[in-house]
Amino acid sequence: MTHHQLTDEAKPPDAPARQQNLRFSSTRRGARLARQLAVQQFTEWTGLPYDSDPARTVALVTAELASNAVRHGSLPGRDFRLTLILLPDRFRMEVTDTRPERLPPPVTLQPADETSGRGLLIVQSYADCWGRTVHDAYTKTVWAEVRLRTTVS
């Protein structure tokens, strides 16, 4: 039985409720489109408003992951892939690029005069969890998850 043939009753607790995979050009425009699509898909799947805290977090984290893939993980003529996964209690964003040898560095605080290098610090601060995975000699995936919760003001 394939994943698509499973009924809701037969799905394991962490099985994705929904999943989407898309490829984008390794350009600033591709990163921007990935961010916009992630937020649009998040709001459609969860029913949470576009201006909710979780939707804003999805926008910020996806923007950082996608821009890192463009800036540090691209090879000429190679796209990056955005995978969006809705799980029962969280939303997962995965960005796969073509530079497995360029793993994200450990997250450290940067001096205040630095103008770059804070992207993963932002991801670590806003995402509930994040990490990286190298599946093969050609790609790596950096992922982050946001819990599905709202705060009442």
Rank of each mutant, 00 (worst) to 15 (best):
F80N: 05
A31E: 00
C129N: 11
T115S: 10
G30K: 04
K140P: 00
T57N: 04
G117Y: 01
A127V: 03
A34V: 02
H135P: 04
F91I: 04
R56S: 13
L37C: 13
A69D: 05
A112T: 12
W143Y: 05
A144Y: 01
R102K: 14
Q110P: 03
T57H: 03
D97N: 11
E114R: 14
N21P: 01
R81P: 00
R81M: 13
T27V: 07
A66T: 06
Y50L: 14
V61P: 02
F80M: 09
V146S: 01
Q40Y: 11
D136R: 08
S26P: 02
E145M: 06
R90C: 08
P12Y: 13
S153W: 12
D97L: 03
R23F: 11
P100L: 10
R71Y: 04
L22F: 08
P13E: 11
K140E: 02
D53L: 14
S67L: 13
W45I: 07
L37M: 15
R18S: 14
G73A: 05
A15V: 09
C129S: 12
T96P: 00
T46C: 05
I122P: 00
P16Q: 06
T43Y: 01
T151F: 05
V152E: 15
H3F: 15
R35W: 05
D136F: 08
R32Y: 11
L82E: 02
F80L: 10
R23S: 13
R118A: 02
T7N: 05
R29E: 15
L60Y: 04
K11A: 12
F42A: 10
T151L: 08
L60K: 04
L65V: 05
L121R: 09
L87R: 13
M93A: 07
L103G: 00
H72G: 03
P106T: 02
H72L: 11
T27R: 09
A31Q: 00
A38Q: 04
H3Q: 15
D53Q: 13
F91E: 01
L22A: 12
D53A: 14
A63N: 13
E94C: 13
V142T: 09
D136C: 10
D97F: 00
P88K: 04
P16W: 01
V146F: 01
R132D: 06
F42R: 06
A31S: 06
W143P: 00
L48K: 07
S25G: 14
E114Q: 15
R29V: 13
R28Y: 11
